[in-house]
Amino acid sequence: MKIQTTRDDHLIAWLAALAITIHIAESALPSPLPGVKPGLANVITIIALLMFGWRTAVWVNLLRVVGGSLLIGSFLTPTFVLSLTGALASLIALGLATRVPGRGFSAIGYSLLAAQAHMAGQFAAAYWLFIPHAALLNLLPLLMTAALLFGLVSGRIAGTMLQRMTYRTALPPL
């Protein structure tokens, strides 16, 4: 049996694979604070968003979360739940951000929003589902600061990558 795949499927798979690679590489990095990671896979989501539209970004990001967790072995564990909540929050933020009229956001703005929404979503899940302790709120400003910084960094990376990429074909937005 042969499954028909479209060009879009390949594209999504390709981007998702990249994102998963980054995701896994990052998960092996030591982290100064739990919950603080550069979130470089965010770069791929932003590139997918800007080159191929929000729907592609959704696919790529969700595949990253599911695929990445399967490979790491955290599928359906609390880590996965946190990761998924973060991804969903950032996708919702990006979806809303694409509706901004005019020139709208560039890579850095999208990345900033995505990173912060990701952190906020993840924190909310951690707080409500796992550790509903008031003192945990003390961490929130630090976590959001980290999200802001990493959002700017990965936005910068995504912007540079987009600039250097040569568009061999002009793909219509999906």
């Binding site: 951000a97 901004v100 005019g102 020139r103 709208g104 956001f105 560039s106 850095i108 703005g109 900033l112 929003l113 912060q116 008031a134 709120l137 003390n138 929130l140 400003p141 959001m144 600061t145 802001l148 700017l152």
Partner: peptide, 29 residues
């Protein structure tokens, strides 16, 4: 950076400051 980017960054920074003010100065709910 586009205008929207700058607006986004400004709002983020303000939100962050508020967050510090709210959670780190002891005036919380």
């Amino acid at each position: 950076m586009t205008r929207a980017d700058k607006a986004g960054l400004t709002v983020s920074l303000l939100a962050l400051l508020t967050l510090y003010g709210y959670l780190w100065t002891g005036i919380g709910p």
